[in-house]
């Protein structure tokens, strides 16, 4: 257990310390800023920005995961098989849309701020979850599926007791990808007024303050890497069977 989560815990601790005491960064930031510029972004507490950032990613991730899972399950059931081509094509097409484009198209529909970013995150985060749900469920070996059917497990029992547990490691990979992409997209969301750590970078770019850019970038990168390693650890835990073995 510990070996899977040591790195993310250390990174998370570092992130929390930097968020609560950003002045620890001043010696480094002083090297970057022009004389007279502010070193630490102080229009809002960094911790507040980070929590908003996480809340946005978390809420959208939850929606994306639920919808992606549901769609992935639907198209792998016998009754939904005919939607498979449509879903895959839509998903492939979706991946050619850059996050910034999804964001840009959402703004005229929903205005600036939280809503367009949330929508973009839901849409964009859905694709990896859907793709890996399909891949994971299809990856359950034919003999295992045949055995489950032959022993008289009902459709729902097969899904819950056999197929989903066996697909879980792959699905977790999708959730990880989705989360990482969304932390990045949420950062871009600050260009359309979403509250988050991206705000610090955007403010730095607009005012030519490299210190702001650097601290925002470092904190966002740390958050993303932290989330990535934590979810990767969770995936390893699932791979080892600890999550799904009954």
């Amino acid at each position: 257990m510990r070996r899977y989560f040591l790195a993310p815990l250390v990174l998370a601790a570092l992130l929390v310390v930097l968020l609560l005491r950003p002045e620890l960064m001043t010696p480094l930031l002083r090297l970057l800023a022009e004389p007279g510029q502010d070193l630490i972004y102080d229009r809002k507490p960094l911790m507040t920005l980070a929590l908003w950032h996480l809340a946005l990613v978390g809420a959208a991730g939850l929606v994306a995961t639920v919808i992606g899972l549901a769609l992935g399950i639907l198209v792998t059931r016998p009754g939904g098989a005919e939607f498979m081509t449509l879903a895959r094509m839509a998903s492939n097409l979706g991946q050619t849309f850059p996050p910034i484009a999804v964001l840009a198209v959402a703004v005229p529909l929903l205005g600036f701020g939280f809503e367009p970013t949330f929508l973009a995150l839901c849409v964009y985060g859905l694709l990896p979850v859907f793709e890996t749900t399909v891949a994971g469920l299809r990856g359950v070996s034919a003999p295992v599926r045949e055995a489950a059917r032959g022993m008289g497990l009902s459709g729902v029992q097969r899904l819950w007791r056999v197929e989903l547990p066996l697909a879980m490691p792959v699905i977790l990979t999708g959730i990880r990808l989705s989360t990482v992409i969304n932390i990045g997209t949420a950062t871009i969301g600050s260009t359309v007024g979403a509250v988050g750590l991206g705000e610090v970078i955007v403010a730095g770019l607009q005012s030519g303050n490299t210190a702001f850019v650097a601290q925002g970038a470092a904190l966002v990168a740390l958050m993303a890497i932290c989330a990535e390693t934590a979810l990767r650890g969770l995936g390893r835990l699932a791979d080892s069977g600890a999550l799904t073995r009954a």
């Binding site: 950062t187 970078i201 966002v220 993303a224």
Partner: peptide
């Protein structure tokens, strides 16, 4: 993993 904006920002330095 590093978000794109952050990467651009960090490379500016």
């Amino acid at each position: 993993t590093t978000p794109s904006i952050a990467m651009f920002g960090l490379l500016m330095v």
